[in-house]
Simulated assay, not measured.
Amino acid sequence: MDVKEEDILGESVYGHWYYVSKGNVIRHLLKPVAGKSVLDVGAGSGVFSKSLMNHDLVENARCVDTAYEVDEKLESYKGKCIRFVRSVKSADESLVLMIDVLEHVEDDLVVLKYYSDQIPSGGHVLISVPAFNFLWSGHDVFLEHKRRYTLAKLERLVNSAGLEVVKGRYFFGFLFPVVAVIRLIKRALLNAGQLSAKSDLTKSNNFVNFLLIAVHVIELKVLFSVNRIVGLTAFCLAKKP
């Protein structure tokens, strides 16, 4: 996840519509393949690992992030163990999360292979990335993104890493038209020097937050299963042969 956005939202990240909705998608995709443990790459505070634990989809988690201040720290979360580590040299977890990670690295294939090569055969990797380069704006500049992806590009990357695509879909499709217009306007203003780069994600009042969560619950139920056309985020669930 984007650490800069977590810093902006603070503790409200756990109830913010964006992270709640993304967590709903993650659990939806992983429910058929959930296992005992998860390796959460670029995990930040472990928002999504904790979401999986809350719904009994995993029993323990290892969260890795170079932003951590110490090499290793153990935390008990609702009677379950989370290990926070700065790096990983080997992995036996059957499930890897790479949520909003690959867009931050220079060589996304090298990073994806590094983790996918370590997991056992039959293990799964779930990836999410920001979608469509034409949406590039100060939001991406602020978050230090290197690129955005189409679903086809993400799936080619997955195949190049030696993984098999199980399912690829776009999400946040209902918001796409509005956000696309806003991003294009902001990019023009940024290029003209009339706007500074910053994240588009902000704290929401309770009513707006509730409404957006409800909208995306509906999207998950009625659109997600067939949406390979448009969205703000691309998801890919992959399996190691």
Results as ranks from 00 to 15, higher is better:
residue 2 D to E: 13
residue 8 I to V: 15
residue 9 L to N: 04
residue 10 G to W: 04
residue 10 G to A: 02
residue 11 E to H: 11
residue 12 S to G: 02
residue 12 S to N: 01
residue 14 Y to I: 14
residue 15 G to E: 14
residue 18 Y to D: 08
residue 18 Y to G: 04
residue 18 Y to H: 11
residue 20 V to H: 03
residue 22 K to N: 08
residue 26 I to V: 15
residue 26 I to H: 00
residue 27 R to Y: 02
residue 28 H to R: 13
residue 29 L to H: 03
residue 31 K to R: 13
residue 33 V to W: 09
residue 33 V to T: 01
residue 34 A to M: 07
residue 35 G to V: 09
residue 35 G to Q: 13
residue 38 V to D: 03
residue 45 S to E: 11
residue 45 S to H: 13
residue 47 V to D: 01
residue 49 S to G: 11
residue 49 S to T: 07
residue 51 S to P: 00
residue 52 L to N: 00
residue 53 M to G: 01
residue 57 L to M: 13
residue 58 V to L: 03
residue 60 N to E: 15
residue 60 N to Q: 14
residue 70 V to T: 12
residue 71 D to T: 07
residue 71 D to V: 04
residue 72 E to W: 11
residue 73 K to F: 12
residue 77 Y to K: 02
residue 79 G to W: 06
residue 79 G to P: 07
residue 80 K to Y: 02
residue 82 I to D: 00
residue 86 R to N: 09
residue 88 V to Q: 07
residue 88 V to S: 05
residue 92 D to K: 12
residue 92 D to M: 06
residue 94 S to W: 00
residue 96 V to M: 01
residue 99 I to H: 00
residue 102 L to T: 04
residue 107 D to E: 05
residue 108 D to M: 08
residue 111 V to L: 15
residue 111 V to E: 13
residue 113 K to D: 04
residue 114 Y to N: 08
residue 116 S to Q: 03
residue 123 G to L: 06
residue 124 H to Y: 14
residue 128 S to T: 15
residue 131 A to D: 00
residue 132 F to H: 05
residue 133 N to L: 06
residue 134 F to N: 03
residue 141 V to T: 08
residue 141 V to C: 02
residue 143 L to V: 10
residue 144 E to P: 00
residue 145 H to Q: 11
residue 149 Y to I: 08
residue 153 K to V: 12
residue 160 S to R: 13
residue 165 V to T: 14
residue 165 V to P: 01
residue 170 Y to T: 10
residue 180 A to H: 02
residue 181 V to P: 03
residue 181 V to I: 15
residue 182 I to R: 10
residue 183 R to E: 12
residue 183 R to K: 15
residue 185 I to Y: 14
residue 187 R to V: 03
residue 187 R to M: 10
residue 189 L to P: 05
residue 191 N to K: 15
residue 196 S to I: 12
residue 207 F to I: 15
residue 208 V to A: 15
residue 208 V to Y: 14
residue 209 N to T: 13
residue 212 L to H: 04
residue 221 K to L: 14
residue 224 F to I: 13
residue 224 F to V: 14
residue 225 S to D: 11
residue 227 N to G: 05
residue 229 I to Y: 10
residue 233 T to V: 15
residue 234 A to N: 00
residue 238 A to L: 03
residue 239 K to C: 06
residue 241 P to R: 14
